[in-house]
Design a binder for these strands. Structure first.
Length: 117
DNA sequence: GCAATGACGCTCT
DNA sequence: CAGAGCGCCATTG
């Protein structure tokens, strides 16, 4: 039980760091995408794009965080252990109107989120 | 505490 | 424009 408590505390410790990341991701408008690097920067964690991926990976279903709108700087859906999640992400984005080219990349010039600040 | 890992990014070729 | 290489940094074993 102590172990469970410790584990929970660790989770919250990370949550405080990831909390900022989730807050930024929630700001991404419907039908728009943002890169991990941009999210990291807006979350006040410059040069920590990888941590954004880590944080999103830790998300649970029903988290209300539009994780599907976060892709890499090349406009591609990043690969991961579960190829299934990758297809789901693309399906979700397409249902929002985001288009993919033949190479499976998003036209960033048209769909990249450009926050005023 | 060191070494490996990862939903990444930028530069150079 | 595509691929390879190197850099970054918190988390994990």
């Amino acid at each position: 039980m102590d172990a469970a408590i410790d584990m929970d505390m660790d989770s919250q410790k990370q949550a405080s760091r990831w909390q900022r990341i989730y807050r930024v991701v929630r700001r991404i408008p419907h039908g728009r995408v943002a890169s991990y690097g941009l999210v990291a920067q807006l979350a006040g964690l410059p040069r920590q794009a990888r941590q954004v991926g880590y944080a999103l990976h830790a998300l649970k279903r029903g988290s209300r965080v539009p994780w599907q709108r976060v892709i890499n700087a090349r406009g591609e859906i990043s690969q991961r252990a579960e190829p299934e999640a990758e297809r789901l992400q693309r399906a979700l984005l397409e249902s929002e109107g985001v288009r993919f080219d033949a190479r499976g990349r998003v036209e960033l010039a048209r769909f990249a989120w450009r926050p005023k600040r």
